[in-house]
C-alpha cells in the first residue's frame, strides 16, 4: 500500500518507442481493464433487466402478495440485523486478536498464530453452515433460554427462546467467526505498520505496553480498522450458504434475535427459493439480489473511500 507512487515515476523516454508489439500489448492490457468495468456495468445491467418484470408486476402477483417492497423489506432487515450483529461481535475481537498477534504474542510463534486465524478465512462458507447447524446452534440453546429469562425486557431478547438454536443470534455469531479473519488481517497489517519511532519513543518515556499501544498504535490504525470492519460487513451482508443452512427464517420483520421466527436474509432467501422458482418468482428473487448488490456496493464504496483517505495521510510517515 505504501509503494503506490513509485511506478508512475517512469522516464518519459519510452513513449518515443512505439512498435506494433507495444501497441498490441498496451492495447490488450487496457482492454482488460475496460473489460472489468464493462463486466461490473453488465452485472448491474443484467440484474436490472431481469428484475424489471418484478418491478412492474402488480403487487398481488409478486410472491407473498404484498408487492415487491413488502417482499423485500423484511429480507433487508434480516440481512442488516445479522450482519450488524456479526460486526459488533467481530470487530472488538478482531482488534484484540490483531494486537495479540502484533504486540503481545511471543515473536517466534506470532506468525504461526496469525496463520491460524487466516485459516478461518480459508474455510468454505458451506462448511461454516454445517458447523453452525451441527455444533454451534445446539450449544447456544442454553444461552437462548437464559437470555429469554434474564434479558427478556430488551426487545432483542423478547423470546420465546428457540428450542433448536437456529436463530438470528446464532447466525450473527457464525457470520462473526467468518468475518473475524478479514477484519483482523487488515487490523494486523495497519498495527504492524505503526511507525516504530513513535512506539519506541513512547516506551522510552516509560509508558506501559498498553499505553504505548493507546498512544502510538491505535490512533494510527483506527481508519484501517474501520475500513476492515466495513469490508467484513460487506462480506457478512452477502453471505449465503451459512445463513441458508443455519437460519430458521421466513418470518416477517422482527428485531427479536432469539426466537425461532426470524426474517430471512436476501442472499439465503435466494439460495433457498431459486432452484424451484419459475417465472415471476425468479424475477422477484433477482430484484432482491439487486437490492443486495446496491447495499453491498454502498458499504464497499464507503470502505474504500475510508481506506483511500487513510492512504493519503500515510504518505507522511
Amino acid at each position: 500500500m505504501t509503494a503506490t507512487k513509485t511506478p508512475t515515476e517512469r522516464p518519459p523516454a519510452q513513449r518515443v518507442v512505439r512498435r506494433a508489439g507495444d501497441r498490441l500489448f498496451a492495447g490488450s492490457a487496457k482492454g482488460s481493464g475496460i473489460f472489468i468495468l464493462v463486466v461490473l456495468a453488465g452485472v448491474a445491467a443484467f440484474l436490472i433487466g431481469e428484475a424489471i418484470p418484478a418491478l412492474t408486476a402488480p403487487a398481488e402477483d409478486v410472491p407473498g402478495g404484498e408487492g415487491l417492497s413488502g417482499y423485500i423489506a423484511p429480507l433487508v432487515l434480516g440481512t442488516l440485523l445479522g450482519a450488524v450483529l456479526a460486526l459488533l461481535v467481530a470487530t472488538p475481537l478482531a482488534v484484540g486478536i490483531a494486537l495479540f498477534v502484533t504486540y503481545y504474542a511471543p515473536r517466534r510463534i506470532a506468525a504461526g498464530l496469525g496463520y491460524a486465524i487466516d485459516l478461518l478465512a480459508a474455510i468454505p462458507s458451506v462448511v461454516y453452515g454445517f458447523w453452525g447447524l451441527a455444533v454451534l446452534a445446539p450449544a447456544l440453546v442454553p444461552f437462548h433460554v437464559w437470555a429469554a429469562d434474564h434479558l427478556g425486557w430488551l426487545p432483542l431478547f423478547a423470546g420465546p427462546a428457540s428450542t433448536s438454536g437456529r436463530t438470528m443470534l446464532t447466525v450473527g455469531l457464525v457470520l462473526a467467526v467468518m468475518i473475524l479473519p478479514i477484519i483482523s488481517a487488515i487490523a494486523r497489517e495497519v498495527f504492524s505498520q505503526a511507525p516504530a519511532l513513535h512506539r519506541e519513543a513512547a516506551l522510552a518515556l516509560g509508558a506501559t505496553r498498553w499505553e504505548m499501544i493507546k498512544m502510538a498504535v491505535l490512533p494510527y490504525g483506527k481508519s484501517g480498522v474501520i475500513a476492515g470492519a466495513m469490508l467484513g460487513l460487506g462480506r457478512a451482508l452477502g453471505e449465503t450458504m451459512a445463513v441458508a443452512i443455519v437460519l430458521s427464517g421466513g418470518a416477517g420483520a422482527t428485531l427479536n434475535l432469539i426466537s425461532s421466527s426470524n426474517p430471512s436474509t436476501i442472499a439465503s432467501n435466494i439460495a433457498l427459493r431459486f432452484p424451484e422458482a419459475t417465472g415471476l418468482g425468479i424475477n422477484t428473487l433477482i430484484a432482491s439480489g439487486l437490492v443486495l448488490f446496491v447495499i453491498t456496493l454502498a458499504v464497499n464504496m464507503l470502505a474504500r473511500w475510508i481506506v483511500n483517505r487513510r492512504a493519503d495521510f500515510s504518505g507522511a510517515n
Binding site: 410472491p63 430458521s248 421466513g250 418470518a251 422482527t254 421466527s261
Partner: peptide, 13 residues
C-alpha cells in the same frame, strides 16, 4: 403454496 404461507415459526431447510 409451495412456500409456507404463515409468518414466523421454526423453519428448516
Amino acid at each position: 403454496d409451495g412456500v409456507w404461507p404463515l409468518p414466523g415459526g421454526e423453519a428448516a431447510n
